[in-house]
Design a binder for these strands. Structure first.
Lengths: 159, 159
DNA sequence: TATTGTTATACTCTATAACTATA
DNA sequence: TATAGTTATAGAGTATAACAATA
């Protein structure tokens, strides 16, 4: 299933990695973002696996919860998912009974996507799980540091 | 080649994504890390593509530059790359003439990896390119904010 | 003609199992 | 028996082209 382990690799024989000079990489913000992302992913996957959800599934379900009836173009754009990949993801969640797609009466090209009752229920659980994963990943940061981190990161990807 | 575009999707018809409520996702640090990572990746790939390098290639070349003769186990561990994937990555860079592998005389199981002259030369260029990508990705942050960001991120993935 | 969504497909990244050669 | 590295392979993520239906 390709589940990443949350804990860092146990390291017998005296932590070799401490002896490796990674100063150039660690001076690059991009590399720090990547390594942090790996940790965040692992915590998130660990939580979502229990609910049978992948990362993108949660992003979709969360967005549907707060934007019922959103169309696929807007959904794909908001979440930075390519439309063909969103289509198959929605196929899967629809088959699982978590959401419905309904053609718009006004414009029959448009699919309006909404959570089912079951999807809404799962979202409530997933929402807690996501928060739990988040807390675990940033447990070493103070509340103030978490605020700063969020602010700085959002400036990187903001339009 | 699957090159991600640096610029966000141009958005005619009045930026639909602004109308999508993403508050739950954006409150999760993990999601902010992910979205920032996508931007960082795009800038990095854009730079490295010119040199024929992938992200992991640069991480390897940088580590070899500062740790000549490092063995594959230590390299894999330091960079969080699975050994089988490192093996094929090194095969490719070795075929390109960027590095050499030499069996240790002391322990013939161990491969000692080093950059060739060509690899060292490419590293010098790649190093500048990486810095350029980094600067572009965090251009909206002040020097102080960049420092904070790096510090906070490193706390997430530090052992 | 342009747009929404879909299908088919391909490439990259990541992970595991099974193997070799050495120790 | 254990370790370093390799091969083979499978799964997930991501990207593009080509298409159908609708506007």
């Amino acid at each position: 299933m390709a589940t990443r382990s949350v804990s860092n690799n146990t390291n017998l024989n005296g932590d070799l990695s401490d002896q490796v000079d990674q100063s150039e990489l660690l001076n690059l913000l991009g590399y720090n973002v990547r390594r942090a992302y790996l940790v965040v992913q692992a915590h998130f996957d660990e939580q979502m696996e229990k609910l049978g959800l992948r990362q993108a599934d949660f992003a979709v379900i969360s967005t549907l919860r707060h934007n019922p009836g959103i169309n696929q173009k807007a959904l794909a754009e908001a979440l930075a998912i390519a439309p063909p990949n969103l289509a198959t993801l929605l196929d899967r969640l629809e088959s699982s009974g978590l959401l419905t797609r309904q053609r718009s009466a006004d414009d029959k090209r448009i699919q309006q996507v909404s959570l089912t009752q079951q999807g809404t229920k799962l979202h409530a659980q997933a929402s807690k799980a996501a928060q739990k994963a988040d807390d675990a990943a940033v447990s070493k940061l103070t509340v103030e540091e978490r605020k700063q981190l969020k602010s700085h990161l959002s400036k990187i990807f903001a339009d």
